[in-house]
Amino acid sequence: MKKIIDREQVRYIAHLARLELSEEEEKKFTRQLGEILAWVDKLKELDTSEVPLTSHALPLTNVFREDELKRSLSEKEAFLNAPQKKRSHFQVPKVIGD
C-alpha cells in the first residue's frame, strides 16, 4: 500500500508550521499522521459534490460596528509579556543584512 504521507513530506509540513521536530518526532508523526489520514479517508465514501461548505455554524456574514475611537491597551500593557523589547518595539533577531 502506498503511504499517504512520507518522512520528506512531514519535514516539509513541519517547516511550513515553523516547527523543528526531533528525529524521533518525525518518525512518530509520519506513522501517526499516516494512520489518522487513512482513517479520515472514510469521508470519501460520501458524495458531497452538491453539498455547500459550512465554515461556520451560524448564519452570520459581516458584522459591522461604528468606527469610533475607544480606549485600548496602553503601550505599557501591550509590552508587558514581550520576551524581548527595546523602547517601544518588539525585538527580534536580525532579519536583513546577514
Partner: peptide, 12 residues
C-alpha cells in the same frame, strides 16, 4: 478541509 466542511453541512 473542503471535504470536511461539506460533510459538516450534512451533520448539521
Amino acid at each position: 478541509y473542503g471535504k470536511a466542511g461539506r460533510v459538516r453541512t450534512l451533520v448539521r
